[in-house]
Every structure is written in C-alpha cells, then in structure tokens.
Simulated scan of single mutants.
Amino acid sequence: MKTASVVMAALAAGVMSLASGAFAQTVHYPGGKSTFDGKCAVCHQAGGKGMDGLAPPLVEYPGKYAGSPDGRAQLGHTVLYGMFGPIKVKEKSYNFKMPSFASLSDEEIADVLNYVVFDLNAQHGSAKPFDVAEVKAWRAGPLDQTAVHQHREAVLKGLGL
C-alpha cells in the first residue's frame, strides 16, 4: 500500500510538472517581464491577456504595430504618456485611462516594449527590438493622452486594423 501511494504521488507530481511546462512562457526580455509584472499586469493581466471592458489584451496588436515606424511610436507614446478614451480591439470595447509611465527609464521602457512585442506576441513580423535611443527620441516630443489616442486611430487605419 505504501509503495502504491508513493508511486501515485510521483505520477501526480509528474503530471503537474508536465501541465505547468505546457503553459510555460519563453522569456527573452526578463527585465521587461519584471517591469510588466510590476506595473502593467495589474490591468493588462498576466501574459497580457487583458481585462474585459477595462484594459485591452496585448497579445496581438503590439506585434503588428512594431513593424512600422508609426506603430512603434504609438507603442512608445502610449507607455510614456498614457492614453485616454474608448478603443476597440477585435470588436471588444475598452474605456481605460492608461497612466503615464514616463518615470521609467528609457531602458525600462525599451525592455517592457520588447517583452510585450517579442515575448507576448507570437507574430511580430520583421520588427526589430526597441532600443534606448528610440525611447529618448519619443521623449523629445511629448504628447498628451488625447493626442496619443488620436494617433492610435491613424495607426490602425495605416495598418488596416
């Protein structure tokens, strides 16, 4: 009896290990993941799955944005300056006031964008990683949250989304 319970416990542990491994995420940008988990996941949820009605998922559009200069700027401006106003993502509506994260360093912003685009988005085309110089350039031309929202609409049209 004791042997059977030991075998069952070992099997259960093995199944649990396999199950958790099946959902494991490969992380290429651990600094970005750390920033995301500490600052963004509270609204966008773990893995960027989003929260219905509040914060959109980050598992598709950012990957599409990152392939164009306007899309990249939109991602950077959204993180730096926040965004206010209703948006739609895949026919779901969200009305969230994204706060500004301008207090993060240029490196932290580049890392979190890289995490979102390359670790959370399976498809990111030929997008190149974000870097500190790119973030510094976005800081040089600050926008308010309304302008970030308006720019998003132009980016969506340009990308056909």
Rank of each mutant, 00 (worst) to 15 (best):
99 P>F: 05
139 R>P: 01
41 A>P: 05
75 L>Y: 06
127 A>F: 00
146 T>N: 08
69 P>C: 06
45 Q>C: 06
77 H>E: 09
90 K>W: 06
91 E>M: 07
89 V>G: 13
46 A>W: 02
148 V>W: 03
136 K>P: 03
111 D>N: 05
67 G>N: 04
63 G>I: 06
60 E>T: 06
53 G>Y: 02
151 H>Q: 15
89 V>S: 12
115 Y>C: 00
102 A>K: 11
148 V>L: 12
152 R>E: 00
65 Y>W: 01
125 G>D: 08
47 G>F: 13
127 A>H: 00
98 M>W: 09
153 E>I: 15
145 Q>C: 07
130 F>W: 08
125 G>E: 11
64 K>W: 10
150 Q>Y: 15
124 H>R: 14
39 K>I: 10
81 Y>H: 05
59 V>I: 13
111 D>Y: 01
139 R>W: 05
69 P>I: 01
81 Y>Q: 03
140 A>K: 07
91 E>P: 13
81 Y>T: 03
106 D>I: 12
118 F>C: 00
48 G>Y: 00
59 V>T: 12
106 D>F: 01
106 D>A: 02
101 F>H: 14
69 P>L: 08
141 G>D: 15
118 F>M: 04
47 G>R: 02
96 F>L: 09
112 V>N: 00
57 P>R: 14
46 A>D: 10
86 P>T: 10
151 H>I: 09
37 D>R: 02
62 P>E: 01
112 V>I: 05
105 S>R: 03
42 V>E: 14
119 D>C: 00
134 E>N: 02
41 A>V: 00
93 S>Y: 06
95 N>I: 09
42 V>R: 13
